[in-house]
Simulated assay, not measured.
Amino acid sequence: MEPVTVWWAELGAARPALLGLAGLLDPVERARRDRYLRDADRDRFTLGVAMTRLAVAGRLGLQPERVPLTRACRDCGEPHGPPVVDGGPHLSVSHSGDRVAVAVSPHGPLGVDVEEDSGRIGDDIARQLLAGDEPPGGRAGLLTYWTRKEALLKATGDGLRVPLRKVRVSAPDEPPRLRLWDGRPGLAERIMMRTLDPGPGYAACLALLDHPEGVPVRERPVAELLRPRADLP
């Protein structure tokens, strides 16, 4: 069975290649990148777009610049939504701190989320994040809840239109799974989840919607994507 692949990059290590990778962005992507105010945000976005194009290009047999990515928002149609390739594969992108993740699946919708343990998760976040029967589990537990719920919202395409308290997941010390989504009976049976390994100081999770039972998940370094483009500065 063809695997789901999660590609990982560390921004600091990838910075020497960013000048060349920026050439893979199309005009819409370049305009979106230029709206970011901070260099780090521009760099994370550039790296995420380039990784997406390289990962899909390898599957479709295209040059990365020719990968037909669209980014139309579901609500307004403007090009600030998540990346989509008509006909697949399915995509999800996340970045936080020094980590960038791109998940690719030939089987169905998916969501990936990575979060840095920056210490900014406090009581205010917990009130927005946790349902009444979810035990907090400290800062690390809240970070785990956050990545699990964000991954689920990406997989279903809801994004932050759904309050996180309506999505109930397993406790941080248990394997990840959707327990209940208020108002959506039967959804839990269609979801599989995996804890990912982004490295120390981070938490990450992958959610798969309507995937084959037992589908393998592979985590790969960005170096494997960049190797065919060793000509980049």
Results as ranks from 00 to 15, higher is better:
D98S: 13
E78P: 00
S105C: 05
S105F: 01
H90R: 14
A101D: 04
V100K: 12
P109Q: 06
V85G: 12
G87M: 04
S94E: 00
P83E: 08
P109H: 10
G81I: 01
G97W: 03
G81V: 02
G88T: 06
S105G: 07
P109K: 01
S92E: 01
V93F: 13
D98V: 07
S96G: 01
V85M: 14
G108I: 00
P82T: 04
P82W: 10
A101P: 13
V85K: 14
E78D: 09
E78H: 08
V84E: 14
G81N: 03
P79G: 10
P82E: 14
V102E: 06
V104D: 04
V93A: 14
S105K: 00
S92D: 04
P83A: 06
L91M: 02
H90D: 14
P106W: 01
H107K: 06
E78V: 12
V104A: 09
H95W: 06
G108T: 02
V93L: 15
E78N: 03
P106L: 12
S92G: 08
S94P: 00
H80K: 14
S105I: 08
G88F: 10
S94G: 02
H80Q: 08
V100D: 14
H95P: 03
H90M: 15
H95S: 10
P79A: 10
S105V: 03
S92Y: 04
P109Y: 02
H107S: 11
V93Y: 09
P79T: 05
P106Q: 09
H80G: 09
G88L: 09
P106A: 15
G108V: 00
A103N: 09
